[in-house]
Structures are given as C-alpha cells and as structure tokens.
C-alpha cells in the first residue's frame, strides 16, 4: 500500500526526481533542472520547430539587455525559444529570463516548471530587479492580448502595453533589442476563444484545431518552422532619465519599437515559403 502511494505521489509531484538542485537563484531558476531540461529544449529548438535565429551577433555583450518581442502561441514557448536561442548562439551564452503572464505564473503544474527554467511573472518590479541584478530580460509588451489573439490576426502586433518597457530601459540604461518571432502563431492556432471560459475556469480556454478535440494530445504544439529575428539594438544612453516619466516620450518610443518589430515580422513572414518548411 505504502509503495503504491509512494509511486503515485512521485508520478504526481515528481518530488523524488533526481536532479532538482538545492541551489536556486533568487527568482527560482534551478540550474540543475535546466540542464536536465536542456535535452528537451534542444529537441524543440532543433528538431520540432527547426528554429533559425538571425541577428544574434548584433546583441551587445556586456550591457544590460531588454529583449522586446511579439507574443504568440498561448503557452510561453516563444519566451523559452528566445532564451534558448540567445543561450546557444550568443558568444556570452547568457540565458535571458523571460517574463510570463500572470495566469501562467500561477497555473498549477506550469508554475513550478516555468519558474525552474527561468520564467518570471511579468510585472514592473520583477523586470526592474532582474535588470538591476545583471540579468537579461525578455519582455512581451502585448501580454495576454498577443498570446490569445485569433489565428486570422496572426503577426499583427496588438497594443504594446502602456510602455512600461520604455521607462524601464531608460531608467536602467538597458539596450532594447527588438525581436520578431515567426512560427509561434502556428503552434496553437486559436480559432475561437469562448468568452465565458476565463470566468468559469479561471484560465482562458482556447479552441484550436487540435484542442480540445484530441484531448490532452491537442496540447502538443504543432511543428511549425520558426525564425527568430533579432533587430538592431536601440540605445537610450543619451536620453535624460527624467524622460522615463514623460508619458508622451514613452508613448512615442513605444510606438517606434512596435513599428520596428512589425516591420521585422512582415519581412520575415514574407521570407518563408510555407508554415511548415523553410
């Protein structure tokens, strides 16, 4: 009986997994866990989505960097892949931390997993503290609106939040690197969003071609071909730090970054021949 319980419990909580380290960084990243997950991440990166990262060499080496990217594909695969691309292909091999929406940051089972591989709940305080402690950060100013947009709106940037990322970059003298992720929209193409689901379930339920039709199998992301394009870094060195609180400046800069990413997206989408192959 006891063995049965133990077995079940291990199945459920994974508590006795080897390779959970006792040293964990202040935001919950677990290096040992990450190393174990590395194989899966490599598989997703190389085989499943065949990610092509372009422009990694433009990313500065020893400055604080704030990556600003388009959000797509419901679950935070895009953040994971951007972080993985930088960690693998950039000469510093630094792994940026990616910010995740509230509902994912507390979603049962996902929360411990995402925290351990470097996800941090998206909020101004967290981003600021991460940059201050020398981490690179991936932010998605569109937030939920980007993640849950319908398939026919793919690669059309939504409103870019309230420009918090601009104030942050100005205040912390961080370099903003615009990032365009192409391919993420196709991993879970959202056909329909039942409007009542967030109220009834507490989480947004998305109807995709495979989910909930195929049950849990529908949670497998579709193997689209990905391109991650890192744009020209934008510097705020010569901007007075008071501008961080100037709403007109923040708004203008936000729109400028948004247009830059939209242009990158458009050109990358045009470049690919089909959703599934390069």
């Amino acid at each position: 009986m006891l063995e049965l319980y133990e077995g079940l419990r291990q199945r459920i909580s994974g508590g006795e997994r080897a390779g959970i380290s006792y040293e964990i960084d202040q935001f919950g990243l677990d290096p040992e866990y990450l190393e174990r997950a590395g194989g899966l991440l490599d598989f997703l990166y190389d085989r499943w989505w065949r990610v092509r990262a372009v422009g990694v060499s433009d990313i500065p080496e020893d400055e604080p960097v704030l990556f600003v990217a388009n959000r797509s594909g419901v679950l935070p695969y895009d953040g994971l892949m951007i972080a993985h691309a930088v960690a693998r292909e950039h000469p510093t091999h630094r792994r940026p931390r990616f910010l995740i929406a509230d509902w994912l940051a507390t979603l049962p089972f996902w929360q411990p997993l995402l925290t351990r591989i470097g996800g941090v709940r998206a909020c101004q305080e967290n981003a600021e503290r991460l940059l201050a402690s020398g981490e690179w950060v991936v932010a998605f100013p569109e937030g939920q609106k980007g993640a849950l947009k319908r398939y026919h709106d793919r690669y059309r940037l939504q409103r870019f939040g309230r420009g918090g990322f601009v104030s942050l970059a100005v205040r912390r003298r961080a370099v903003v690197v615009p990032v365009a992720v192409v391919g993420g929209e196709e991993v879970h193409p959202v056909l329909y969003l039942p409007p009542l689901a967030p109220h009834l379930l507490g989480v947004p339920l998305t109807i995709t071609p495979t989910f909930p039709l195929l049950g849990p199998l529908g949670l497998i992301p579709l193997p689209s071909q990905w391109r991650i394009r890192f744009g020209e870094p934008i510097r705020f060195d010569d901007v007075a730090s008071e501008r961080a609180d100037d709403p007109l400046y923040v708004n203008r800069t936000r729109e400028r970054v948004r247009n830059t990413i939209q242009d990158l997206l458009d050109s990358e989408v045009r470049k690919r021949r089909s959703v599934w192959t390069d």
Binding site: R9, Y22, D30
Partner: peptide, 19 residues
C-alpha cells in the same frame, strides 16, 4: 537569505509531501 521551493525544503528534510 535565499528562497527555496517548498518541494526542495521537504526533500531536504526527508519529508513526504501529500499533494
């Protein structure tokens, strides 16, 4: 100093968790 996940604390203590 330092924060640890609950599961790690329990594992350090050799305690079983009942989720």
């Amino acid at each position: 100093d330092g924060a640890l996940p609950l599961s790690t604390l329990l594992r350090l203590a050799g305690k079983r968790s009942l989720p």
